[in-house]
Design a protein around this nucleic acid. Structure first.
Lengths: 331, 331
DNA sequence: TTGAAAGCGCTAACAG
DNA sequence: CTGTTAGCGCTTTCAA
């Protein structure tokens, strides 16, 4: 399209060279105030907009961050991305969102896209089956910082920010001990995942630490529906149960359905506490007491770390954000 | 970085010209099978990846779609974006997500970013205060198709895909008539929004059409909390109320809290129906019956329309997706 | 204080 | 079948 306003066009119209116009536009000290004004005025009138691709080609990097998550349909990632986008925008960066669908192959494909597009940096929450971190580390070598968040690789030296999983579970346990709950239906997620293992260990340890004689009925569940079923069965079988602990939102949803189905009153008939991003617990009355794992806060931290890396911080870091207990009156 | 693999590098190593390598890589018929194989092999070995910026600069357009929404923290946009991303990926496109925060100024800034980045196309759900569509239409002139979805401009000729608002409200009303509900607490959103007005009109008309003698208690509410308060008050004041209609998820959340607070049983004590994306209604037991407004389906349609525009379809179109009633047992 | 010129990596007409 | 060449729009030495 010949209507495109370019540096050349401005230069021609002003009888200046392209380089002068370029420099004027970015306030290069060499250029006289006079020309600067003239150039800027014309640029404004013609609504000149620099061609991003030319710049990127020239400078060999872009102002785009890639974000790879298993799927965005999740309150936690939602909050994370939403918050990250705001921060990024402030700094002139855009976000490219990619979903791996928890499939390592698609994840790899996405990583390649990021590399090919010379992204400025990458935020990744890996799939549950990702074993080979190699491809990510290659990016780091090319000076494309990779910040892992939430689901992070277990051992490798890399930049990670995540919620304090163990701590969150401990806090939930402490709340239960404090309320002297004796028979606790404890619902955990997929036992294969390290997040489940960490939360489980800390949860158990906390009761031991405080010398509580609570009886823990522990189950692992892989879906909301399964949580609903387990909870229903257990509550019917065991009338002693006086509290439910849910390791995540998905489980909470199932457990709450069971509680509603059985017509139990919270917190009189039964207490409940969860680890959650915070959206779901607020949907019920009374609101569910939860240990917060804030995607919002995590995004702030991840972005700060990214800026540091971009600014040249070369060492890797493993950061954890602390949780807080948000009392909804359900315990 | 000198380790970057470029066409030139491949050409030098193979003693071929850059153009031959380029053509071999894209299976140009002019090139001999022999050279093609040689070139492709080396490219594979060296992990050659074309420089996107050079291509974009050359061809003056990218494989990126901009997506501008008021905010992504919303089940509907969530579903929309998630679905759109999958489709886009299949076709080699990426998604740049931008949030306007329902602020027309940020929206405008984002539109400019899209223009500046020569996006391949744009999906927009406008802010509630957007009046000037001019800037969007300018993009269309530059052959950057703009597909408005969900929140679309009222009058202008442009590509729009949205849920059939009136139809959804009519369907909800029909369900209520069918169940012979007589005193219906009818909760609508912000009365200033055209979506509210359309849903309200159709809702009312449906009762008239069927000659139902139902008594509608109509309220407009702007938040979940307000919905909770109104519902609580009304249910206490008027024991005749036998059903609640909620125009959207936000209102449903508030109404459900009130119902839980008052300890009412669904559907025996009271019936409830909502217009929703579908996530929230499934959180309760029994699940809430709702008229579906699917972000997923809308995305499919929007993407198809985008492809058509990219393929040269120049006329504008206004598309609507129909809703279905999903019975959760709450009515 | 300004301009000329080279080149980022790629594509595509044109020429052999 | 392959090579030469001329850019795409911009930045950045180097010269003037």
């Amino acid at each position: 399209m010949s209507t495109e306003v370019t540096l050349k066009k401005l230069a021609d119209m002003l009888n200046l060279s392209i380089s002068t116009v370029s420099r004027a536009l970015k306030d290069h000290p060499d250029i006289s105030t006079d020309t600067k004004i003239k150039v800027k005025e014309l640029a404004a009138v013609l609504d000149y907009e620099p061609n991003t691709y030319a710049i990127n080609l020239r400078t060999n990097h872009s102002k785009e961050f890639g974000v790879i998550v298993p799927g965005i349909a999740n309150d936690f990632y939602q909050a994370f991305i939403s918050s990250l986008e705001e921060d990024a925008r402030q700094y002139g960066f855009s976000l490219i969102i990619m979903q791996s669908g928890d499939d390592p192959l698609i994840e790899l494909e996405n990583v390649k896209r990021c590399k090919q597009n010379r992204m400025a940096g990458l935020f990744v929450s890996i799939t549950s089956k990702t074993v080979d971190i190699h491809n990510f580390l290659k990016l780091d070598e090319q000076h494309i910082p990779v910040i892992f968040f939430d689901k992070v690789p277990a051992f490798e030296a890399c930049n990670k920010v995540c919620v304090a999983d163990s701590k969150a579970a401990t806090m939930a346990a402490e709340a239960l001990v404090l309320k002297r709950k004796k028979n606790i239906l404890s619902l955990f997620g997929n036992a294969q995942l390290s997040i489940t293992q960490r939360r489980f260990e800390s949860f158990k340890q906390a009761f031991i630490k405080y010398g509580a004689d609570s009886n823990l009925l522990i189950f692992n569940t892989h879906s909301s529906l399964e949580a609903l079923e387990i909870t229903t069965t257990q509550l019917l079988l065991n009338k002693q149960i006086d509290a439910i602990f849910c390791m995540n939102d998905e489980i909470l949803i199932g457990a709450m359905k069971a509680v509603q189905k059985l017509g139990l009153r919270i917190p009189t008939d039964i207490g409940i506490i969860a680890i959650s991003e915070g959206i779901i617990p607020q949907l019920y009355y009374p609101e569910i007491t939860y240990v917060e794992t804030s995607g919002f806060k995590l995004a702030k931290m991840a972005f700060a770390r990214m800026l540091a890396c971009l600014a040249g911080s070369s060492y890797v870091q493993e950061l954890k954000i602390d949780s807080i207990v948000v009392d909804g009156g359900s315990l």
